[in-house]
Computed example of a mutant assay.
Amino acid sequence: MGAGTVYEAASLAEARAQARATGPCGLAVLDLGLPDGNGLELVAELRAMGWKRLVVLASSNDAYAVRSAFKAGAQAYLLKSATGAVVTDGVKHVLGGGVYADPTLAPMLVTGAKVPGSDNTPRDLSAREVEVLQLVADGQSNKEIGEAMSLSPLTVKSHLARIGHKLGTGDRAHMVALTMRAGVVH
């Protein structure tokens, strides 16, 4: 997919060392099941180090693992059992500034979108909220969304807060992943 340099690590320790040596790169593809630790720790560490595009490629379709990866800062969660086309599509979405989850995870992500004690789902979003989330999925900042929709960045932030309440998450990547898999955002 046009990568100029590719680094590989077989363990959490090697990945940490490589990340420190190179600094943030264009894309990191991470496994959660590493021999010396949990890849979720690495996702959070890389995010804190300034890495912008993090893709988890894992064998687990466990709801907790998927949600934890997005909460830690991943922009995509792909299954190792996915077709090459799905992996390519996910990586392209992330490289374009978007968020992606393996299509087979849709039912699980939608179930996880409910606010405890309510029946709110991604389908409960207003047309304006969906429009905001579509721009978030396209990788735009609050300021860029505001300019595109003739809103102030503060109004965009208010929309995102309402969306977060409805979906039960305050994480932008998680919001987009939930609504994309539910077919609300494309």
Rank of each mutant, 00 (worst) to 15 (best):
L167K: 09
V87Q: 14
V6P: 02
C25P: 08
L154F: 15
R53S: 13
V184E: 11
A72F: 03
L125P: 09
V55K: 02
R67P: 09
L160A: 06
D119L: 15
V99E: 07
A17W: 00
G23L: 02
Y64G: 10
K52Q: 04
G2P: 10
V156Q: 06
R172I: 02
V86R: 06
P122Q: 03
K52Y: 00
I145S: 06
S141V: 08
S141T: 02
K166E: 08
V115R: 00
S59V: 14
D62L: 02
V110P: 12
P122D: 03
V176T: 01
K166V: 02
E129L: 10
T121P: 03
G2T: 06
D138A: 15
E8H: 14
S11Y: 02
G23R: 04
R67T: 07
V184D: 03
A148F: 09
V43Q: 03
E14H: 05
A10I: 15
L34V: 10
D102F: 12
K52D: 05
Q140R: 12
V132N: 01
A137D: 11
H174V: 05
R20W: 09
L167D: 04
P116S: 06
T104C: 15
L160K: 09
A21E: 05
R123L: 08
P153E: 12
M49T: 02
R123Q: 12
S11C: 00
T179S: 11
G73R: 01
K157N: 13
A148T: 15
T111E: 13
Q134E: 02
K80T: 13
V115E: 08
L54H: 09
A3M: 03
K92N: 15
V136W: 05
L27Y: 01
E147N: 03
